[in-house]
Design a protein around this nucleic acid. Structure first.
Lengths: 103, 103
DNA sequence: TGACATCGTAACCTTGAGCGTTACAATAGG
DNA sequence: CCTATTGTAACGCTCAAGGTTACGATGTCA
């Protein structure tokens, strides 16, 4: 029984950086202009200080010819991991009886 | 070539309602207590006036013995659809040249 | 070395979502 | 008639995302 102790998931910004900016010799400034967002916004994502919103996912998908889901899936993994690390009391939630029994 | 004109995706709140609350004769009040959130918060989700956050996905997954991804995937589909319907200029984003060529 | 591009970020402001509490009116059931 | 359940409004709080402007640090190149 594995503890399911997954490590920090890859942040979409890392992909933008390593798989697109660097290979294509694209500058943050140039890409931000192409995406139609401020340099600050893209910089924050690339430096993992902000997440990819649905709107940004659409922009990235058009710029790099990918599916918007690709970006949102990466973001979801990251956000979920972050939420798991935060104690908000969610671990105290017990299964609904009938559901547990149905098992 | 289909225009990919998908219709409004199912909101996670609808699933909570039809697949859990009703079958299990659970009241919004009872479930909210079990999830450890306010009645208002759960009500908003069930009535599709709010989305499922990563934290809520974790709570739902524990309560119903599902994966948190299940809920976040539903939410992602809904949010992406909503973003597509909104004109923020994302449709004007052009593919990065080198990417287009590599095709 | 000097001119210019790029970058990360801070400071400031606005908008909007999520969540909580309290309270009220409408419904449904026993 | 009494009670449980509900949706929601009214408030208040916190936080994320986005924009603009500006500054200092680095790097490149003629």
């Amino acid at each position: 029984m594995r503890p399911k102790m997954t490590r920090k998931p890859t942040h979409p910004g890392e992909i933008v950086k390593h798989d697109y900016l660097e290979p294509l010799s694209l500058s943050v400034t140039a890409l931000s202009a192409r995406l139609g967002v401020s340099r600050k916004t893209l910089s924050a994502i690339v430096n993992e200080r902000a997440g990819v919103t649905p709107d940004m996912a659409l922009r990235l998908s058009r710029a790099f010819n990918t599916s918007p889901e690709l970006w949102l899936n990466l973001q979801r993994g990251y956000d979920l991991w972050a939420a798991e690390q935060t104690d908000t009391g969610w671990r105290k939630v017990e299964p609904v009886p009938s559901v547990a029994l149905r098992k």
